[in-house]
Design a protein around this nucleic acid. Structure first.
Lengths: 262, 262
DNA sequence: TACACGCGTCTCTTGTAAGAGACAATCTCT
DNA sequence: AGAGATTGTCTCTTACAAGAGACGCGTGTA
């Protein structure tokens, strides 16, 4: 905990300074590459995941041999490999919701000109699973796979619908309640928002992650009451109420289409 | 080597009956799910990869926690998870060739009505990285990610261009030379095909994997002389020479576009 | 009711993989 | 050219994960 590099991958980590399981190291490596978003040298990688160099070399070799990672051109940088792409496509194929959700999102952003996103819970965190940029000159782009604290987002409020207070507390750390601009959300307010979003069937947040945008989100159900994902539009904060209402209507209609199958 | 237990997952396996490294088990699990192409129970999975049940449970739990796998609806089946999808998308993003190749292939199949594919070497095996089905009533669809012996395909001949005899021998097992219909290819013929494909800049095979199709393939270069991928069209075997020639021209033109960047 | 089977969890042992560290070979700055 | 950093490989030790197997539970079926 004291040594810079707090890894804090997801939930309560042990931070055992001692021997670490190879598989866990691998998971950290993958996650590190995911946040880095570019090929990286093995030495640097070892530092990044806080692992011994020798171990890192061994693991990376295994992963490269397996095709999960690939050596970059010059030969001493690694990044994700074809195998991961293939497995990812398998996931898409086996997942109706994602497959159709992607199409819907792409369509939606073309139709409205606004940035459109499909979001899901990913091991307890809010994740942008697919996003399609709008046509505005200044678009707000958030990288796919980005993980954002649930309370920062409209989608977060919808995704937690149906969970009781304890469950929500379990998923939201204290730091999550601090917005990018430093304001601190009260947990009770957040929980009230969730309840409200649940009954209204949509959620709008203004100027939460940044001061210039509004986020409109609607739930996608995999079963009655079970929110599997959300679709959302990111629009300028000064979007008129009429247009906002119209967009929400559109979103709800599209989300309803997705909600049929599990 | 004396102790029975032949697992023989894919290529030359060690068949160490003794303790297996967790990471390797995981790699086998992923590969098994990839070939199975559907969610599978943990017990069955353990059998499938020939691993002890207790170990399998532990590993699967780690993978589910990490989001690489997900429990299927009823709760005792697993399949690929969102994380793998995200990593896969990272790969696509970091890989110009794949990103543009996919577009080109989709476009090509819409334009010609034929099944079109992007193929690459994947740890020494021929792999269909992306495919777009044609519009024919009886389409020949091969699953993405399918791995096929190199000598069975036109693309295989192009992908090996530039390798010397020893390298080719290393990548092609004896069984690979046996075609689906039982005919056995001579290694020398195969190597001659490779040399020929290299100079002509394309390759056509007729009735190799099955009796009804012809495969037209052209190379995509990542550097002068270095074949990084191939694009190919799968057409009925009775396609006229004129049309075949036309399609090859089209393929070459499109492949040339892809070949610019690394 | 009894039996066989598959599932999920737990305990304990021991074979082995994670890790520390030494090494030579490149680079990259003065 | 010399000092310092980085890279890839190798060896050896021991902490610990892989695995065997027992257990309890739910289910099917004879």
């Amino acid at each position: 905990m004291q040594d810079g590099n707090a890894q804090a991958v997801s939930a309560g980590e042990k931070t055992t300074a001692s021997r670490e399981k190879g598989l866990n190291r691998v998971l950290e490596i993958l996650e590190f590459l995911h946040v880095t978003q570019r090929a990286i040298g093995i030495g640097e990688l070892a530092k990044g995941v806080n692992a011994p160099r020798s171990t890192t070399y061994t693991l990376v070799r295994s992963l490269v041999d397996a095709g999960l990672l690939e050596m970059e051109g010059d030969g001493n940088r690694v990044y994700f490999g074809k195998k991961l792409y293939l497995y990812g496509m398998d996931y898409v194929r086996g997942n109706d919701l994602l497959r159709r959700g992607r199409q819907e999102v792409d369509h939606l952003s073309r139709e409205t000109g606004e940035t459109s996103e499909l979001c899901m819970l990913q091991s307890g965190r809010y994740t942008i699973v697919h996003s399609s940029p709008g046509t505005r000159p200044f678009r707000i782009s958030s990288a796919t796979g980005l993980q954002i604290p649930l309370p920062w987002t409209a989608s977060g409020r919808l995704l937690l619908a149906g969970l009781d207070r304890a469950a929500v507390e379990g998923m939201v750390s204290d730091g999550d309640l601090v917005l990018p601009d430093g304001r601190k959300l009260r947990l009770d307010d957040f929980i009230a928002d969730i309840a409200k979003a649940r009954v209204t069937g949509y959620c709008v947040t203004s100027g939460l992650v940044d001061a210039y945008t509004k986020c409109l989100a609607v739930p996608v159900f995999s079963a009655p009451g079970k929110v599997e994902a959300t679709m959302c539009l990111v629009v300028p904060i000064d979007t008129s109420d009429e247009r906002t209402a119209g967009l929400i209507g559109l979103l709800r209609e599209r989300a309803a289409r997705l909600s049929i199958a599990g």
